[in-house]
Design a protein around this nucleic acid. Structure first.
Lengths: 223, 223
DNA sequence: TTTTGTGAACTAGTTCACAGCT
DNA sequence: AGCTGTGAACTAGTTCACAAAA
């Protein structure tokens, strides 16, 4: 380790944008590794997605000096670092709350399992769903048992996929159960305490946003 | 219309962020309208979600002078304006490409229908799926008929929910069929021409982003 | 040579603060 | 009085450009 390495320690805020990009880099590195590439430069990475090379170097340099000047980044090594930074070097345990169409689909989503996420349980309040399983075998529990299960199964992240009217109260239950991160697919603005990390995946907002750009006739490829 | 109204004309770029917020405002206005509220101030709106009142005024003022000083915004009027700005004043026609678990769930998602989106068709390449319908009644067509159907059904937006390996080639088919906006649920970076508006809803990136903040937040992970 | 890591410059996005209208 | 619309100030995020390292 050559120099200062200012990252990792202390609470110097990292933006949502950066976090998302790190994840994108990791996926790219997995592909490169599978192809047998030994090293990759920030320029090569930048060309894959629509990005500036300096951006990638800054994002990475924030967490340490992972590169080698004149060479680039060693794929396996950077991959290992990124997995650690993103916290997916060990299994991350996820619960899906809401066993409707969307919740069931998310529970069986193959992409989750691949990248170190374990879908541990589904939750619903409808008695006739409880005890059954998703097609992929994830068991449905009573949402009343959330707290108990969060402790027992060490659930890290809750994915919220319940109807709009129930979202806020179920979110409160999730928080009360001790979950510190929520991926919210339900529409509307949830209120959660500041120590809980909330990420909204609002389907209607996404479609309306696309509709807006169609209506304007503008376009601009971006994430 | 009182004054200058600099918005709407010309190509003065509006950011993705603004577009998303407009959609959020609209949902809030729908709720206010349902509650019978006649007017609303930017301050009151700002308190609903975590936002600054000036932000809301700026977002809206960009498209015209919709407010009344000393009063606020007339709910019904602003709602009407926002629906027009977002292009949801007429039915927006959506196709879901990929009739797997996720695609089927999205096709029946009740939130879409509510807000002026019509889910017109599902598409898949698996012959044994073609001709069937989602639980909610959306018919599954052969992805080979995409071009024909886009013309016939005037499809505005395609939602892409196919496995990662197929995503890029299916995206190309969607573009070739003349669709100008894609909501992409498949993982990985798609390449589309600049005149096509692409919005990524990457489930893995979202979870990893949450995992990242969890990993940072915990003052000291064991071992 | 190549390519990183990084201060400086730049661009985009947000908030402040107040004039001006009702 | 109350509240919008908006220039100015500020903050966050990105890109440039170059010294330093392999």
């Amino acid at each position: 380790m050559t120099g200062k390495n200012k990252g990792r320690v202390g609470g110097d805020q990292v933006s949502e944008l950066t976090a998302g990009r790190l994840s994108v880099y990791l996926r790219c590195l997995n592909a490169l590794d599978a192809e047998g590439a030994k090293t990759v430069s920030s320029k090569a990475l930048a060309e894959q997605f629509q990005l500036n090379a300096a951006q990638i170097r800054k994002d990475l340099a924030y967490f340490g000096e992972f590169g080698v000047r004149g060479v680039g980044y060693y794929v396996k090594e950077l991959k290992r670092h990124l997995r650690q930074i993103l916290g997916v070097d060990r299994s991350v345990r996820v619960a899906i709350v809401g066993a409707g169409n969307l919740g069931l689909a998310l529970a069986d989503y193959p992409g989750f399992r691949q990248e170190g996420f374990a879908i541990v349980a589904l939750f619903d309040s409808e008695k006739n769903k409880i005890g059954h399983r998703s097609k992929g075998g994830v068991r449905i529990f009573d949402v009343a048992d959330l707290r108990k299960m969060v402790k027992k199964e060490h659930i890290d992240i809750a994915v919220l996929a319940v109807p709009a009217r129930a979202a806020q109260s179920v979110a409160a239950q999730i928080v009360a159960a001790g979950v510190r991160a929520i991926l919210n697919f339900s529409p509307g603005a949830l209120k959660v305490p500041p120590q809980v990390k909330l990420k909204n995946m609002d389907l209607t907002v996404s479609l309306e946003s696309l509709s807006f750009f169609l209506a304007r006739g503008e376009s601009d490829a971006s994430s």
